[in-house]
Design a protein around this nucleic acid. Sequence first.
DNA 1: CGCAGTCTTGAATCTCCTCAAAAGGCGTGG
DNA 2: CCACGCCTTTTGAGGAGATTCAAGACTGCG
Lengths: 237, 237
Amino acid sequence: MFNETLLGASSPVLPIDCLKLNKEASGGTRLRLVSPGTTIVLQGTRRDATVRIVEGCICLFQQLADGRRQILDVLGAGRLFGNALADTARYRAAALTFTHLETIDINVERESIEDELRLMLHRSHAHAILLGRKTAAEKVATALIDLAQQFARIASEQSDSTTFTLYLTRADLADWLGLTLETVSRCLNSFKRGGLIAFKHPEIITIADEDALRLLAAGQPSLGRRPTAYSQVISQP
Amino acid sequence: MFNETLLGASSPVLPIDCLKLNKEASGGTRLRLVSPGTTIVLQGTRRDATVRIVEGCICLFQQLADGRRQILDVLGAGRLFGNALADTARYRAAALTFTHLETIDINVERESIEDELRLMLHRSHAHAILLGRKTAAEKVATALIDLAQQFARIASEQSDSTTFTLYLTRADLADWLGLTLETVSRCLNSFKRGGLIAFKHPEIITIADEDALRLLAAGQPSLGRRPTAYSQVISQP
DNA sequence: CGCAGTCTTGAATCTCCTCAAAAGGCGTGG
DNA sequence: CCACGCCTTTTGAGGAGATTCAAGACTGCG
């Protein structure tokens, strides 16, 4: 069962797996460490219950009555989460690794919050075309490109290969991409055999051929299947 | 081919199929009539190019390189659209019927714009779980409930049946729900045979059994298939 | 009346899912 | 240090839901 972390100025309660630190920089904002698997619950309906991810990875998800799960977004360092962005009662957040959070002042960060809101909407729209119109391979390719950008290690910049930690399990990826865990695994290993990516441990991924992956992710006619267009194709303006 | 309507204070250009009216009420906002099939292009990157739908129906959509299309949202009267909400260069809008638009002042309507932004995000998230995790029948049921709410005719409130105009074609519905036009047609006719809905003309739909439709839309265990849950089911708090 | 567009329906195909089993990693404890 | 159990991942075989292809029906319009 998931642990639950309560966050919010109104609640002094902190579960065992949360560390509370005080930071003198940036005006004494609190830092909280959340363990993987923990469901993050922002206290009440307070508008000011909003946090910034300092380090780590969090996913937002929704569930249907029978348990079918859809991960809405995967958030890395710098992303915001909380009631100032959207009613947190409508979906839930879970930490995918040890994650540092810091509470933010919604009056001071008004601008950042509006930017984050626009970013969320843009990402959600991009994800809609992924879920609705991309093939399994295209979905996985898109996810890899996205996660590589968000979680790339600043390690050796040798050649053009990027390595990143895949905080999501195959099951998480499946619930993000609208697939099954087996299909995700098959795609990843097919990419591996094709030389698009490389991995030894299933959670440390190296992008070997980013160009090819990007073409696949974009749904390039040559690589994917033929299109399902029910309306005339409209040329870009 | 789609016509293109230019909107925005910077552009005095109006295509033939657009009527320009002056309205004395609400401070001289302009009203524009857009014909169905018209792609609406908000001029430039101006932050103030934003409109409210007074009457009619507009859909927002994106396309992949090969023409695969995904409708992001269907907007009815009262909804906003424009650069104040999201960069309109990232997706396009098309009128699905004769539609009245009025330009709004983003300084005066600051509050409404932020509300609309949150509504867009919420709807996009709700649509994500539809695209990723619902079956074809559940998708179509969800769409019908949604459209009935947004486009219900205020006609005879007899019994509990709602009738509405389906401005979307089967192809539009398919591109909204991540299905094919044939699957949408099959679902609608299956609902018709099952007594959930009724229609004589394919674009005038009556919701006959709203409760059953809502259960289906919610992905009720008894009606749909068994769940695809890759993580433990988390009980609601 | 005939044409064009949308919608409906059927049959075959295919992608992805389901079910199943085996392999690999990791921590615990003997 | 290795055995054991637990969990995630991989891989295979078969099946189901949705798509594709195709033909016919309905509607509105010149």
